[in-house]
Simulated scan of single mutants.
Amino acid sequence: MEGMHNRKLFDLLVSWLLAYFVIIGALLLVCVAVTIALMIGASWTVTVAAALLAAAPAVALPFSARAAKWLLLLAYSGLAAAFVWLAFWPQPGAASVPLVKGVVVAFAALLVVRVCLAWRNDRKARQH
């Protein structure tokens, strides 16, 4: 019984240490993002924010697969929204490319279909 208690204590200590390093790493990334935003400008701020959003599921996965799935959905949804905005928002001096618009619409449609299929499969798995 004593070995089991020590193992649980060790696992708890490792979890706390891992959480500490994740928090420190996230804070460092935020500090770098703010520094880049102040030094370079808004376009790099958006790029760094997108990179942080894309890295969030990988950070959350060791703690919760469910949270990582939701963060990944959020990252892909944000990416699709940004693509739609860039492809369809009228920009002065930029030519409209129909192929880019088609690819953006296909990406957004595939994302919606994938999410709907995943939710349907989850509901079927819960019923059985």
Rank of each mutant, 00 (worst) to 15 (best):
P92E: 14
V113P: 01
F83Q: 07
A54W: 07
V32S: 05
L9T: 13
D11P: 00
L29V: 13
A81L: 09
L117H: 03
H128M: 09
L9K: 10
I36D: 05
M1T: 14
A37F: 15
V105R: 01
L99P: 01
A87W: 07
L17I: 13
M1A: 14
A82Q: 07
D11Q: 15
W44I: 03
V112S: 07
R120E: 03
G3M: 15
A54P: 00
L71F: 04
L110G: 11
L9F: 11
A33F: 05
W85I: 14
L52K: 00
F83M: 05
G102Y: 08
L79W: 05
G78P: 07
L52Y: 03
V59Q: 01
R123N: 07
L12M: 11
I36H: 05
R7W: 15
A67P: 00
Y76T: 11
L28G: 12
V84L: 08
L27N: 05
L86N: 11
V59K: 04
K8R: 13
Q91H: 08
L29M: 14
D122S: 03
V113D: 03
L110F: 13
F107S: 03
L9C: 00
L52F: 01
A33D: 10
F63H: 05
A75E: 09
R7E: 15
P92V: 13
V48Y: 09
A108R: 03
V105T: 06
I36C: 06
A81P: 00
A81D: 04
N6V: 12
I24Q: 04
P92F: 11
V46E: 06
G102I: 10
H128Q: 09
R123V: 01
V22W: 12
M4F: 15
A37L: 14
A67C: 08
L111Y: 02
G102P: 08
F10K: 10
A19W: 09
V84F: 06
A118L: 08
S64Q: 02
F21Y: 06
V115A: 09
L28N: 11
A118V: 02
L72N: 11
W85E: 11
E2H: 15
W89E: 10
D122G: 01
A49K: 02
L28W: 12
H128V: 07
W44T: 05
A56T: 10
A49C: 04
T47D: 10
W70L: 15
D122N: 04
T47F: 11
L12E: 15
R123K: 11
I36L: 08
A65S: 10
V32Q: 06
S15Q: 13
A51C: 01
N6P: 00
V46Y: 06
A87M: 06
G102T: 10
K124Y: 01
H5I: 12
V84Q: 01
A68I: 05
M4Y: 14
V84G: 03
K69G: 08
L117A: 06
A94S: 11
A75H: 04
W89V: 10
A50W: 06
L79H: 06
N6W: 10
V105A: 05
Y20N: 08
W70Q: 14
F21N: 01
R7M: 13
R114Y: 13
G78I: 12
A87D: 11
T35L: 14
A80E: 07
